[in-house]
């Protein structure tokens, strides 16, 4: 049984994270851990909210802290009730240290992390990819499923492949984590420049490998700039499509990810994105 962690901000509970986690757990029968990031430096209110004409109101601080405590408790209860009703094997971690560090640490001991791509862990709104998600992706120690804010059941899979080890690694990890999605429509997407042939890189080896894991996968080769062609192609896909991609800007940068393809996908699209990197 695999161990999957779903990360939540208890002050802004992501129902779509829970919905995607539920779909994955239903199909995989994995063990689910709800990681509630209750960072002591993060509150729903701003410092300016505490100031009255007589200075900082202790009474107001108490009220707002109590409100946050209740909101967080309700989020945990919602998670708990949902898991109980669905009959999942689950447990809950309420992490109260610095959120990003806690989550990276949790990821060492997990097979997969599910999190909302719009998570900020601040009371500010930020466009995707948020600073929190960027920091998380550059340090996370297990594969990540970034989910959009509204849930759409996964019905199609598109795997980005550029011949680099990181893209093969992502496909490999995806096949371990989601063997139950093998029957879905699966496509391997490659972009080549205008002067190259339409063969996928390492044609024979990758096809042999894909055949073992996704026997009915199709191949799509586009020509042009990956940053443009991939986005154009994905925009034409249904909202029920999950995208699999490789490395997220680490020390060894793959060809596709010089400008971080994952960032562009998060910015331009609202599709679940599976990222795994070595």
């Amino acid at each position: 049984m695999k161990k999957i962690i779903a990360a939540f901000d208890g002050l802004k509970f992501s129902e779509s994270t829970l919905a995607y986690a539920s779909q994955v757990i239903n199909m995989s029968h994995a063990h689910l851990v709800g990681v509630f990031l209750e960072d002591f430096t993060y509150t729903s209110y701003k410092i300016s909210d505490l100031i009255t004409k007589d200075g900082v109101s202790e009474y107001k601080v108490g009220l707002l802290e109590e409100k946050d405590k209740n909101t967080r408790r309700q989020s945990v209860e919602l998670f708990e009730h949902t898991c109980q009703a669905a009959g999942f094997q689950f447990n809950i971690h309420r992490d109260q240290d610095i959120a990003i560090q806690e989550l990276i640490h949790e990821s060492i001991y997990a097979d997969l992390l599910i999190i909302d791509a719009r998570e900020t862990l601040t009371h500010y709104e930020e466009p995707a990819p948020t600073r929190f998600i960027r920091d998380l992706l550059s340090e996370v120690q297990c594969p990540v499923l970034l989910v959009p804010s509204s849930y759409k059941p996964i019905e199609n899979i598109i795997m980005l492949y550029d011949g680099e080890p990181s893209s093969v690694f992502a496909i490999r990890m995806f096949s371990y984590m989601f063997p139950f999605l093998k029957h879905l429509n699966t496509e391997v997407l490659t972009v080549k420049n205008n002067y190259e042939s339409l063969h996928v890189p390492d044609n024979k080896l990758i096809k042999e490998f894909i055949k073992r894991h996704f026997p009915s996968a199709n191949y799509q080769v586009l020509k042009g700039l990956p940053e443009e062609e991939i986005i154009r192609y994905l925009k034409g896909q249904s909202d029920h499509t999950l995208v699999v991609s490789g490395s997220y800007r680490r020390s060894r940068v793959s060809r596709w990810f010089r400008t971080s393809m994952a960032d562009i996908i998060m910015k331009e699209l609202r599709l679940p994105l599976f990222i795994a990197h070595t």
Partner: peptide, 13 residues
Amino acid sequence: TEEKLLAGYLGAH
């Protein structure tokens, strides 16, 4: 080191 997290992971498998 990290006994609880390690046990959580192995216990699931």
